[in-house]
Simulated scan of single mutants.
Amino acid sequence: MTTEPFTGILTAVVTPLTGDASAVDAAGVKRQAEHIISGGIHGLVPGGSTGEFTTLTLDERKQANELYVEAAAGRVPVVAGTGALSTGETVELSVHAEKAGAAAVMIVPPFYDAPDFEELLAHYGAVSDAVDIPIMYYNIPSATGVQLTPEQLARLARETAVTSYKDTGGDFAWFSAVKELHAQDITALNGWDTLTFAALASGAQAGVWGTAGVIPRLCAELYEALGVRGDLHAGRELWSRIFPICRFLESHNYACGIKTGVELVGVSAGPTRRPVQPLAPEHRRELRTLLEAAGVETVDDAAATA
């Protein structure tokens, strides 16, 4: 297996949809990729929660992953989300992602039956046998009902092709235990927006961050300040502008918030799929205000929906 540690900020990207939400919008994928990569971000992660993967068909998931690999054109790595309810479908998506050119796959545990640890070992082991690219474990216990101990996560990495994990658990003590005690087995990537400053300041080498799809330049600057230069003063100044946006997004349906954000900055990705509804007008105005307070230029609503 070929593997190279991820560094920097990898954006958890949206799945752009046509205006009636009936299909993946290929032009929209290119628009998102250019906005993000030109903003200095270090990787793309399609097919996760931000990408509304649970609302997509199997073919749409494959299409979105292919389109993002194509749009990245080798400039940054693409980590394709391939988690599914069954091992068979997870393997199918992962094999397809590898053939499409993904640098790695991100796999969430099956999120209905809450498999036990031995079942997880078999599940991730089956994918490991089927592909020759690394696996990023997607830790999001609020959605999966699966909460591993730090020791179990390290064992999972030792016995399968899992080399890193995205932590969307929100428990910084748990994240720190994995990062500090099990770094020889697995690389810890922050995936909880409002903990980004703390994670980077504590030495995490990478993060998967949906907000970077809206404000890529500010997010890249935060990583440069904390992760590269170790400049806490500059990092704190940037974080004071970024944090209110992160807090807002964590207070609403996340995919909808990100899609509203990219629309407000002029790179519309279409609607979310139902049952998720658009942000209420007052929340949309609040997000615009937060973006502008952070120094981000927004477009008017007529231009945003054009």
Rank of each mutant, 00 (worst) to 15 (best):
P275D: 02
V127E: 00
V14Q: 10
I133G: 13
G191V: 12
A204E: 00
I9A: 02
V13Q: 11
T144Y: 06
T163Q: 12
G88S: 13
K62C: 09
L67I: 15
V178K: 06
L56S: 05
P5M: 08
I242K: 00
H233A: 15
S22C: 02
M1P: 13
K166W: 09
C219N: 15
E159T: 14
G47N: 10
L279Q: 06
G191K: 06
V299P: 06
G47W: 05
V228F: 08
K99A: 13
A72R: 01
T298S: 07
A201S: 13
A212H: 01
A27Y: 06
T11V: 11
W174D: 09
T11L: 05
A122N: 12
G125F: 04
Y223S: 01
Y137V: 03
L287V: 09
T149P: 04
F248P: 06
T11H: 02
T163F: 11
H35S: 11
L291A: 08
N253D: 15
Y223K: 03
E66F: 12
T289S: 12
G48E: 15
L218F: 03
A177R: 15
G270C: 10
E263W: 00
E180P: 05
T57E: 05
G213W: 04
E52C: 05
E159C: 08
E159F: 14
A130P: 04
L181H: 14
V214L: 05
L85K: 04
F117Q: 04
Q63K: 15
W192L: 10
P46S: 13
R285F: 11
G170I: 06
L200N: 03
N253T: 12
S268K: 12
L264H: 01
L290K: 14
T7M: 04
T298P: 07
W209T: 08
G191P: 10
V296M: 06
A33H: 04
I37C: 06
E263A: 14
G51R: 12
A201W: 09
A199D: 15
S240Y: 09
S38K: 13
C246V: 09
R284V: 04
A204L: 05
I133T: 08
T82Y: 01
P115S: 13
I36M: 09
G40H: 03
F243D: 14
A126C: 06
Y254N: 07
L93T: 01
V91F: 04
P115K: 01
G203R: 01
A234P: 03
T3M: 11
V265N: 03
V296L: 07
G207A: 15
A225V: 07
D301H: 08
A225Q: 06
S49G: 10
G39R: 12
A21L: 09
G227R: 00
R241G: 02
V214G: 10
R236V: 09
E250W: 01
Q205P: 08
T18W: 09
E180F: 13
Y137P: 01
D129W: 03
K166N: 05
M1F: 13
T15W: 10
